[in-house]
Design a protein around this nucleic acid. Structure first.
Lengths: 350, 350
DNA sequence: CATAGTATCGTAAACGTTTACGGAAGCCAA
DNA sequence: TTGGCTTCCGTAAACGTTTACGATACTATG
C-alpha cells in the first residue's frame, strides 16, 4: 500500500488502537507520545504527532476521563430563563473570556452548566457532580443560604463562588465590592446634599442584596441619616423591574431625592418610568448605578461603577486552580477571599 | 448492623460495585434496575432505587459514556467575549430554556460549549467532536461560509444550526425570518411615505447580514426604489456600533429618513447618537428594529419585531432530535428547514 | 412426569484510554 | 567479558459502566 493517504483521511479514526497499528507501534507508546511523557524517542514522538494530526485523531474524552479520574472540564453553573439572570447582557460572556485565558494554559475546557428554570438547582448540581462531569465548579448567583455550597463541600469537589453567602464552608470566593460601592455612593450623594436616599435590591434572596442594604444603612448612619424602610425597593433584576420601581417611587408621598441601583439591567426601565411620571433623571432624581454596555448611552449618562469583567474572570480562574491539587503549584498561596473593587465613573445622572 | 444509616450516607459512594455489594446483588442487576430494563423483579428494582437515592449514587458519566458510546449531552456552541456575540445573553438564556424543556424529557443535558475569543472556532469544534464530548451540537452565529458545517457533516455528528449559511451540507436549520422582517419593514416605511431607507448589518460575515440586505434591496425595488450603497451601515453588533452608525448617518449629505436595524443591541447607542446630532428618533428619523428586553423602555418606544425565544428553543431541540436515530421516532417527519416568523409590534419610533 | 416457556439474575466481555511494570537493547566502565 | 545504567518500547491491568449470554428456578401445559 502507499505510504499514506490511501483512503482514511476522512476523519474516521476509530481510536488509539487503529492509530497505533497504522504506525506499527504499540498503543502504549502512542499514548505516551501524545501525552508528552518523557520516555519516548523524539523521532517516534514526531511521527506519532504527525500521524495523529493528519488522521484527525484526538483522544476520546470518556476513555481518558475514566482512566485518569479527571475530565479536564470546569463547569460554570448558571440558570436559564429570561427573568432569572440578574446580570445584564454581556456580563457573563466577558467573565468567561477571562476565565478561559487561564484555563487554556492547562488544557482545561470551560463549559456552562445550564440549569433549567424548571429544575431545582440543588438537584441539578447533585446530578452533575455525582456523574463526575467536571473536575471543578464555579458557582454564581449565590443566595443568602445556599445549599449548593454544602453539597460541593461534602463531595469534596473543588469549587469557587462568584458571590458570598451565609452558608460558608470555607471555600474560596470572589465577590464584587458592594460594600465599597454602597459607601462611595452614599458618601457622594450626601456630600451633594441628599438626605433621602433610596436603594434597590433583588426581589429574591440573592446574597448581594443583604450586603448592599446593610452597608448603605451603615454608611447613612455614619452621616447621621437613616434608611427609610419604604425607600428600599425590591424588584426582579430586569428592565420591567426597574419600571416597576419607578412607578412605586413616584407614588410615594415623601419621595427620596436619590436612588442607588445595585443592578444594571433595571436602569433603562427605571429611566423610562421616571420620565413618564414627570421625574427627570439627573434633575429631579439623582441616580447611581452599575456600568453596563448601554449605561453610557442613556440620557443623562449614568453615573456608574465600573469593573473589568475580564480581569475578574482571570482572578476567578486562578483562585479556583489554586485549590486544585493538580494545579496548585502554579498559583501559590493566594488570598482565597477576594473583594473585587469597582471604580466610580461620573456621569450626568447624579 | 442496623438496617440503614450506619455511616455511609455522607455521599462517598464509590461506584455501582459498592452499591451492589451493599445490596448483596450483582452489579448487572443493579445496572438493569437503574436503567429501567424489563428483566428485573419489581421489588428488587425498588430496593435498588431506594438504596441509590439514599446513598446518593448516580452512574459515573465517563464509564457510562464509554460503554454506551453516547454521552447524553448536547452542546450549544457559542463564542465568549463581549464584542462578539451579537445577541445579548438574555437572548440565549431564553432559547436555552426552551431547548431544555424538550431535552429533559429524554434525560439529555444541555451545556454551552464556550469557545474563547482567542481560539479558532473551527479548531475548537474539531477538538470537541473528536473527543466525543457531545452526542449532538447546536451551532449559532452562522457565517456566510462556515467550515464548521462541513466538519460536523464529515464526522457524522448530528447537528442543527440556528442560522443559515451558503455552506449547506443538508443539515437541518432554523433561522429567523429576516426576509419577512425586511419585507414588512420596507413595506411599512414606504407606505408611510419614506423614499430613502437605510439599513444596518453586522460588520463581519454573519450570514444574516446578506439575507437581510438582499431582501431589503428586493423589496425596495418592488416599490420602484433602490437601496443606496451609502445607506448600508456595517457595525459591531453592540451599543458602541449603534452610536457609530448614528454619527456616520448624521454626517451624510443626503440623509435617509428611515433606518431598519437588524440587530437589537445597537438600538440604545443609535438613539443616543442621533439625539446628540440633533436628530429626534421617531420624528426626524423613523426607526424599526428588533425587540429586546429594553426596546419598550426607550423613548420613543421602538417599533420592533418580536418572537418567542422559548418556542424557538423548543423547535430547535425537536428538530435536532428528529435527526438523531435514538430519538427520531418521537419527532416524526418534520420539515428540516424552518423560517421562524416574527411579529411587528408597533411603537412610536416610526 | 416431561417439556417448554418465563421470570429473574449472575458472569464476563466489552468500550478507549493511561500507566505501572518489565524487558530488550545499547553503552560505558571495570 | 561482566555488570550496571540508560533509553526506549511492549504488555497488560486498571477505570466504571452496560449488555449479550447463559444459568437457574419456577410455572404452565401436554
Amino acid at each position: 500500500m502507499a505510504s499514506r493517504g490511501s483512503g482514511e483521511e476522512r476523519g474516521k479514526m476509530k481510536g488509539i488502537r487503529e492509530l497505533a497499528e497504522h504506525l506499527d507501534i504499540s498503543i502504549g507508546t502512542v499514548s505516551r507520545a501524545l501525552n508528552g511523557k518523557p520516555d519516548v524517542n523524539e523521532e517516534t514522538r514526531k511521527r506519532v504527532l504527525e500521524a495523529a494530526e493528519s488522521l484527525g485523531y484526538v483522544a476520546n474524552q470518556s476513555g481518558r476521563a475514566l482512566r485518569k479520574g479527571a475530565t479536564g472540564v470546569i463547569g460554570f453553573m448558571m440558570q436559564t430563563g429570561s427573568e432569572i439572570t440578574g446580570q445584564g447582557d454581556t456580563f457573563f460572556m466577558s467573565v468567561f473570556d477571562g476565565v478561559q485565558t487561564v484555563f487554556a494554559r492547562h488544557k482545561l475546557d470551560l463549559v456552562a452548566l445550564l440549569c433549567s428554570s424548571e429544575e431545582d438547582p440543588n438537584d441539578y448540581l447533585k446530578r452533575v457532580v455525582a456523574r463526575g462531569f467536571a473536575d471543578g465548579i464555579i458557582l454564581s448567583a449565590t443566595r443568602r443560604h445556599d445549599a449548593r455550597f454544602e453539597l460541593l463541600a461534602k463531595r469534596k469537589i473543588p469549587f469557587i463562588t462568584l458571590g458570598r453567602s451565609l452558608t460558608d464552608v470555607g471555600q474560596p470566593w470572589l465577590d464584587l465590592d458592594f460594600e465599597g460601592m454602597a459607601e462611595a455612593s452614599i458618601d457622594r450623594l450626601v456630600a451633594r446634599g441628599h438626605r433621602h436616599v433610596a436603594i434597590t435590591r433583588p426581589h429574591d434572596d440573592m446574597n448581594l442584596g443583604y450586603v448592599f442594604e446593610d452597608q448603605c444603612r451603615a454608611t447613612l448612619a455614619r452621616h447621621g441619616l437613616r434608611l427609610d424602610e419604604r425607600h428600599i425597593f425590591r424588584s426582579t433584576p430586569n428592565e420591567a423591574g426597574g419600571y416597576q420601581i419607578a412607578r412605586e417611587l413616584s407614588a410615594l408621598e415623601t419621595r427620596p431625592t436619590a436612588v442607588v441601583l445595585i443592578n444594571e439591567a433595571i436602569t433603562v426601565g427605571l429611566y423610562r418610568g421616571l420620565v413618564e411620571a414627570g421625574i427627570r433623571p439627573g434633575h429631579d432624581m439623582a441616580i447611581i448605578g452599575r456600568q453596563s454596555p448601554h449605561s453610557q448611552f442613556l440620557s443623562p449618562r449614568l453615573t456608574s461603577f465600573r469593573l473589568s469583567l475580564r480581569d475578574l474572570g482571570i482572578a476567578l480562574a486562578e483562585s479556583l486552580l489554586a485549590t486544585m491539587p493538580a494545579f496548585a503549584h502554579f498559583y501559590p498561596a493566594r488570598s482565597a477571599r477576594l473583594l473585587w473593587p469597582m471604580d466610580l465613573v461620573p456621569g450626568e445622572s447624579d
